[in-house]
Amino acid sequence: MKQKLSLFIALTLLCTFKVFSQGSKQIFESPKLKECVKNHHLVAILPFDVKISYKKPPKDFSAEANRDQELKTGKSIQSGLYTYLLRKADKYTVTFQDIDKTNIMLKKLKLIDSLDSHTKDDIAKALGVDAVIFGRYDEQSTRTQAAAIATAVLFGFGGKTGDSSFTMSIGNGADGELLWRYYKKMNEGMFTSSEDVMEQQMKKLARNFPYSK
């Protein structure tokens, strides 16, 4: 009975604990950044480009289902970023376009599925904004969550389930020039969601975010 209780407590703690390890962080700022940001008033957040891969694909792997998950995750990161920025709206010098409006306009203009084929200034002009925030999230799963849990319960460590990298950039609406870029390489932990990723990264780059007052 005691062993079962201990196992239950361990699993409960693991389910509420998220593991993020520090990795390499890089920030790029264009010489024109400060000058351009002064003229920005409305900024759109685009769905993130997501790539999910496996060191060893699971037995039930489906390329179609995996692509659907990538698209879903891209919009989830977009939503997580928008929610975070809304919560702290008074701390920023710009207003962020509602992502529902952004996505509907992109769909109507037939841009939603071909963002990589258009320049950032073309997209900004189509959306009627001064700049666009865009990014990429790459994740390679090296082991299953079940395996990570088993290792952690038995040995007290081993929660890592994969490697990932997160990139967020700002493109100037007037000329499409890259004004700012943040890159972070991470180790993914158990039960890490896209919302968790966004929350953690925004906390890390808060001081360097160009639109912070």
Rank of each mutant, 00 (worst) to 15 (best):
L11K: 11
L11H: 06
L11S: 10
T12D: 03
T12P: 02
T12A: 05
L13Y: 03
L13V: 13
L13T: 14
L14E: 00
C15D: 02
C15K: 04
C15W: 02
T16C: 08
T16W: 04
T16P: 02
T16Y: 06
T16N: 10
F17R: 03
F17N: 06
V19K: 10
V19A: 12
V19R: 14
V19I: 09
F20S: 05
F20C: 02
S21D: 12
S21K: 11
Q22C: 04
Q22D: 15
Q22R: 07
Q22K: 15
Q22P: 00
G23N: 08
G23P: 05
S24Q: 07
K25Q: 12
K25T: 10
Q26N: 09
Q26C: 04
I27C: 03
I27W: 02
I27E: 01
I27N: 05
F28Q: 08
F28A: 11
S30N: 07
S30H: 11
S30K: 11
S30D: 08
S30I: 09
P31M: 12
K32Q: 15
L33E: 00
L33V: 06
K34V: 08
E35N: 08
E35P: 01
E35M: 08
E35Y: 05
C36N: 12
V37S: 14
V37R: 07
V37K: 12
V37E: 10
K38G: 01
N39Q: 14
N39H: 14
N39C: 04
H40D: 10
H40E: 04
H40P: 01
H41K: 10
H41C: 01
L42V: 06
L42R: 04
L42F: 00
V43F: 00
A44G: 03
A44F: 01
A44D: 00
A44Y: 02
I45T: 05
I45S: 01
L46I: 11
L46G: 03
P47S: 10
F48V: 10
F48G: 05
F48H: 07
V50W: 04
V50T: 10
K51G: 02
K51W: 03
I52C: 02
I52F: 03
I52A: 01
S53F: 07
S53H: 08
S53V: 07
Y54S: 03
Y54K: 04
Y54D: 01
Y54T: 03
Y54H: 10
K55H: 13
K56M: 09
K56G: 02
P57H: 07
P57W: 06
P57F: 08
P57A: 10
P58C: 03
P58G: 04
K59G: 11
D60S: 13
D60M: 04
D60Q: 11
F61A: 15
F61M: 13
F61G: 13
F61T: 09
F61Y: 14
S62G: 04
S62W: 06
A63C: 02
A63Y: 07
A63G: 13
A63W: 08
A63H: 15
E64G: 00
E64L: 15
A65Q: 07
N66C: 15
R67Q: 12
R67L: 15
